[in-house]
Amino acid sequence: MAEAVQTAAPAARSAQATVGDSEFDRDTAVTRREPGVYDAELSAGWTIIHAVNGGYLLAMLGRALGDALPHPDPFSVSAHYLTASRPGPAVIRTEVVRTGRTLSTGQASLLQFEEDGTEVERIRVLATYGDLDALPGEVRTTAKPPAIAPIEHCFGPSDGPAPIPGSSAITERLDIRLDPATVGWAIGAPSGKGEMRGWFGLADGRDADPLSLLLTVDALPPTSFELGLTGWTPTVELTTHVRCRPAPGPLRVAITTRNLAGGFLEEDAEVWDSADRLVAQSRQLAKAPRTA
């Protein structure tokens, strides 16, 4: 995970669709300024509507924590989104909270600066890291992979109507194919079920790893679209559990919302790999889009 943490100015590298050498890795790279302090550049390529995607930001913070902590893989990452991030320079400050034989815990904050120099905290994260390769192989579960139409029968951004207002840059970096049963919102006929399902990958073919799973859980359109509410759905809090290292190949993502009340909704996500394993789970609280 620390392969994209830099300690000096990097040499120019050609884009490769491999873990450690892809657009995702370059755009989530952080540079260690001093122990616990990292410089970063938030790329405009991961924006949607008018904000930097929360999963992309979480992956960047996860990369910094992976360098600061003695264990390599995120197990549980809880993030509170305090203010909207914008493309440009940022500083990440990390703190080691506890280290043990099998787990270590740390916290991190991403900060940006206003034009007058005022420091503004964008996100604060508390995370526990471990070694996924050291986990026992026993699995006892009642969870089942989501029922999603074959990928060739699913729909991508190019199949939809006019682009959403504002930035849609992130869609160029992702290969998302949505299940036809969850795209009614795109033709003005939302199902009302609060579900979103689809196949997920990075557009350059880079396989998934534990760090990119932090992006995956927040990359599909919000379930509020299928509830008939379109517009920005800002994340308030997002907790992600990484369960195992994903196998190569496309991922399947299923997200559900059971309760929208008081202007807020929850989204529960499951991510399954090509070997039919549940590799990540998440729950987030988000503000519902405003109704017209």
Rank of each mutant, 00 (worst) to 15 (best):
I176V: 13
M196R: 11
G201N: 05
H71K: 13
P180R: 03
A286Y: 00
E34N: 06
G201H: 01
L214A: 02
P145W: 09
P180H: 03
P210M: 10
V77N: 00
P180T: 02
P145H: 08
P250T: 08
A162K: 07
P190K: 03
R283I: 11
Y129K: 03
D179N: 11
L65I: 11
I170G: 00
A288M: 06
V120A: 07
S14E: 12
G36C: 06
L285Y: 15
A219P: 08
A143R: 11
R206C: 11
L110C: 03
F200G: 01
S14W: 10
I176Y: 01
R32W: 02
N259T: 13
W46K: 08
R33C: 13
R290N: 10
V37A: 13
P234I: 14
A261Y: 09
V77P: 03
A208N: 10
L110M: 11
G66K: 00
L285W: 15
A90E: 04
Y81K: 06
A15T: 14
A90F: 04
C244D: 12
G45A: 14
R98A: 06
Q6N: 02
S109I: 10
D131V: 05
K144G: 02
G188V: 01
A269M: 06
Q284C: 15
W272G: 00
V236H: 14
D25N: 12
V139L: 15
A286E: 00
P246L: 03
T171Q: 14
V52Y: 04
G205F: 10
T105Q: 03
R197C: 04
L214S: 03
R258F: 05
A247R: 05
C244F: 00
T235I: 07
D21E: 15
E115K: 14
G137S: 11
A286G: 02
T99S: 13
A286N: 04
L57Y: 03
H241W: 02
E237A: 13
T128M: 04
E195G: 00
P221M: 02
V242D: 04
T256A: 14
W46H: 14
S85I: 07
Q107V: 15
L82W: 08
R177N: 02
A44I: 12
P210Q: 09
P145S: 10
A181P: 01
V91K: 05
G137H: 14
P234M: 15
A44Y: 08
L103S: 06
R206Q: 07
G262P: 11
D175R: 05
T105M: 09
R277N: 08
T142N: 04
E266H: 07
E121L: 11
Y81R: 01
R32Q: 15
P70F: 03
P246A: 04
A4R: 06
P150G: 13
W232C: 01
P146E: 05
C154E: 04
P87R: 03
V5P: 00
